[in-house]
């Protein structure tokens, strides 16, 4: 009896182990197929579902969140895809999200991708119809691929030619192999660096000078920015203008006077005119001058005679002595 009881215990454990694995199996599958837990139903409309089947996964941002429940033909161009989504995703998906049909990997099962957009919108509700994006057509993709491939082959050909040209060019290789070039480039760069530093300094100085001038200091500053100085220059210029005007008047007057004198000289009856024009007067003057010369010659003789006279000899000798003393000193 006890042995039978023990055997029954073993049997019970054996059967329960099996049963629990079976239940686990069913539960796991059911969980993956969204049979348990509360769900929300969403819809989307497509023109072509590209082989999507009920039971395919629905993904949001790459996470499996549900499955395709069924696909219905609404009319000749519209197919309605009904999806079962986990209820807990209700508070993340917005009703402006976009539904697209993609492939799991390159050749895998079809999946429905729900992509959120950046715009804000209310959250999804039961039986909402989300807008869809046209699925990528494999044929179209391959066509583009073939076009791209042609372009790439062309580019590769060009690249090949370019590289072979580069390989052939001895000058370029010489340039590349020359070890001195990097050094000279380096030194040039350092020179450039110093030059730019100098330029920097100059610019800085210039800046300070300009600032100085702007602030109205120094002669240039005064010239450029002092309003009082400008006013005085204006005044000066006005005075100069006046002066030159009066100079013009003066010169005009002088000219008139000179003209008048000239006219008087040439045509008048005055003494000077007579002196200049009358030949008789000139002769008279000539005679007079000859007479004066004769008179002064006679006077010279008289004076010489006076020096030698007794009365005046002492005076002359005294003058001679004084002159002598001055020259000696």
């Amino acid at each position: 009896m006890t042995k039978d009881f023990l055997n029954n215990i073993k049997l019970g454990v054996f059967i329960l182990a099996s049963l629990s694995f079976l239940i686990l199996l069913f539960y796991m599958i059911g969980k993956n197929r969204n049979f348990f837990g509360s769900n929300i139903k969403l819809k989307s409309r497509f023109e072509n579902v590209q082989g999507l089947k009920s039971g395919n996964n629905v993904r949001y941002a790459g996470i499996d969140i549900g499955t395709v429940e069924k696909i219905e033909v609404v009319n000749d161009t519209v197919l309605e895809v009904e999806m079962i989504i986990e209820n807990k995703m209700k508070k993340f998906i917005r009703n402006n999200s976009i539904v697209s049909i993609g492939t799991d990997g390159l050749v895998g099962n079809k999946v429905v991708n729900i992509t959120s957009t950046k715009q804000n919108a209310p959250l999804i509700k039961e039986n909402d119809i989300l807008s869809s994006r046209r699925p990528v057509d494999t044929d179209e993709m391959l066509r583009t691929f073939s076009k791209t491939n042609n372009d790439i082959s062309l580019i590769a050909k060009n690249l090949k030619k370019t590289t072979s040209d580069i390989n052939k060019s001895s000058g370029l290789w010489k340039l590349l192999n020359d070890n001195a070039i990097p050094e000279s480039i380096h030194s040039s760069l350092s020179n450039l660096h110093t030059a730019s530093e100098q330029i920097n300094k100059i610019i800085k100085n210039t800046n300070s000078i300009v600032d100085h001038i702007k602030s109205g200091n120094g002669p240039i500053g005064t010239v450029l920015y002092d309003t009082a100085f400008t006013q005085s220059i204006k005044n000066t210029l006005r005075d100069i203008n006046k002066l030159s005007n009066s100079a013009i008047t003066l010169s005009n007057e002088a000219k008139a006077t000179v003209d008048n004198i000239n006219d008087q000289l040439m045509n008048g009856k005055g003494t000077i005119n007579k002196l200049l024009k009358d030949s008789i007067t000139a002769e008279n003057i000539n005679i007079s001058i000859q007479n004066i010369k004769k008179g002064s010659d006679g006077f010279n003789l008289n004076m010489e005679a006076l020096k030698h006279s007794l009365l005046f000899r002492r005076y002359f000798k005294k003058i001679e002595k004084e002159n002598k003393c001055k020259s000696e000193n």
Binding site: L22, L25, F26, M28, I29, G30, N32, R33, G55
Partner: peptide
């Protein structure tokens, strides 16, 4: 378990 479905398990069971 991702690859399994009820139609795999039930008939076999």
């Amino acid at each position: 378990f991702d690859s399994l479905e009820f139609r795999d398990v039930l008939p076999a069971f």
